[in-house]
Amino acid sequence: MNKIQNLEERLQGTRNSLSTDRLDMSFGEIMSMYERDEIIIDPDFQRLFRWDTYQKTRFIESILIGIPVPPIFVAEDENGRWELVDGLQRISTVFSFFGILKNTQDKNNWIMCKGDLTEELENLACKDLPLKFQLNIKRATCRIEIIKWNSAFDMRYELFNRLNTGGSELTDQEIRNAIFRGVSKDFNIFLRKCAEHPKFIQLIQPTERQLEQLYMDELVLRFCALIDGQDDLSENISQHMTNYMKKAVSDSERIPQLQVKFEEMVELLHPVGKEVFRGSNNVFSTSLYDCVSIGITKYFEKYKNVRTDELIEKVNQLKESESFKKASGSASASKSRILKRIEVANEIFG
């Protein structure tokens, strides 16, 4: 079979795994569906609504002057309800403008700033607009692209990843959480619980932006994917974490054991302090995070009773290792570098 035949089969197979439909709907109809809980914006996803007042005003202005609205993507669940996949910023802007956005009432009934084309919008809320303008917004139509329930979840992930057209791009972890919550929320809840562990936060010292973008959740997933899914390592760590989470959300039985391993690792490393995952430049290093967390977890029985100064000595030994340095730096997310870091972790901690 030649390359072109392989290409045709691969493309056809991928197309067959995707089942879609499309509708043109008014924002008023979408709002009514939302109020009847027929279109779901999950609270974990909804908190990612982060357009500023200028971006929101610009979108409302676009609707009022008749600029076409880009398509919104939803995923149909097993009950026929729609879960928002792409279009969070646009949908949430309209919902909050009319004061119906759930779970985040503080974002409702916001006041516009000057529009790019209509300065007169400044200081106006929805209730201040003439009724005909409010109705213009509700009657504005939007194309809804529906990803049917029988579509492959990895294809839903790819759609979200490629078609995330909002003003603030989502991180890989935000996308994973949004897509895979449709299978089961147990694993998402587990990631969130671990991410909020006070001692873990003290070790990582995340910025506010990192917290907002679920960086802590991603680090927990990274730990799980390398400890529990090492044998299926993909060519790229981000893709590996996606593949691992796709499997993990369907297998809640693994969660208790993973939680124990994660908490043991955090408790043991917490006395070492935030320097444990930082190199000479005092910047957090995912390469150090991989090596230290894996090494400590794999050989936990050996280290659970050692003094903190002995543990620090081991970590410093790792940082000074030439093998570790070669497996870090550029291309550190590749499979070969990660496997090398795991090898180094076994050498140093084992």
Rank of each mutant, 00 (worst) to 15 (best):
M1C: 06
N2K: 03
K3M: 07
L7G: 09
T14Y: 14
L23H: 04
S26I: 03
F27S: 00
E29T: 12
I30G: 00
S32Q: 13
S32Y: 12
E35S: 13
E38F: 10
D42A: 14
P43K: 02
D44G: 14
R47W: 06
R50W: 05
R50F: 09
T53V: 15
K56N: 13
E61K: 03
I65A: 04
I65N: 02
P68Q: 02
P71T: 12
I72D: 02
A75W: 07
D77Y: 11
N79W: 14
E83V: 15
V85C: 08
D86T: 15
V94G: 11
S96H: 11
S96Y: 13
F97M: 02
G99D: 05
L101D: 09
N103R: 14
N108G: 10
W110E: 04
K114Y: 00
K114Q: 06
T118M: 15
T118G: 08
E119G: 04
E120W: 03
E120Q: 08
E122N: 09
E122Q: 11
A125C: 08
K132F: 15
I137W: 04
R139H: 09
I144A: 03
E145D: 13
E145A: 09
E145H: 10
W149C: 14
N150W: 13
Y157V: 05
L159W: 12
F160W: 10
G166E: 07
N177K: 08
A178F: 09
I179D: 14
V183G: 13
F187D: 05
I189D: 14
F190V: 01
F190P: 01
R192K: 12
K193R: 04
C194F: 01
K199R: 13
Q202Y: 05
I204W: 05
I204Q: 02
Q213T: 14
L214Y: 06
D217W: 01
L221C: 09
R222N: 00
C224A: 09
I227E: 06
G229L: 10
D231I: 12
D232H: 11
Q239P: 03
Y244A: 05
K247H: 12
A248M: 15
D251Q: 10
E253F: 09
F262G: 00
V266H: 05
P271A: 09
V276S: 14
F277L: 06
F284Q: 04
T286L: 12
L288N: 04
D290S: 06
C291D: 06
S293E: 03
G295F: 02
G295E: 05
I296Y: 01
K298L: 08
K304Y: 04
L311E: 01
E313I: 04
V315I: 13
N316E: 15
K319R: 11
S321I: 00
S323Q: 08
F324W: 04
K326R: 08
G329D: 04
G329V: 01
A331L: 03
A331M: 06
S334L: 14
S336M: 12
K340T: 00
E343F: 08
N346E: 15
G350R: 11
G350Y: 08
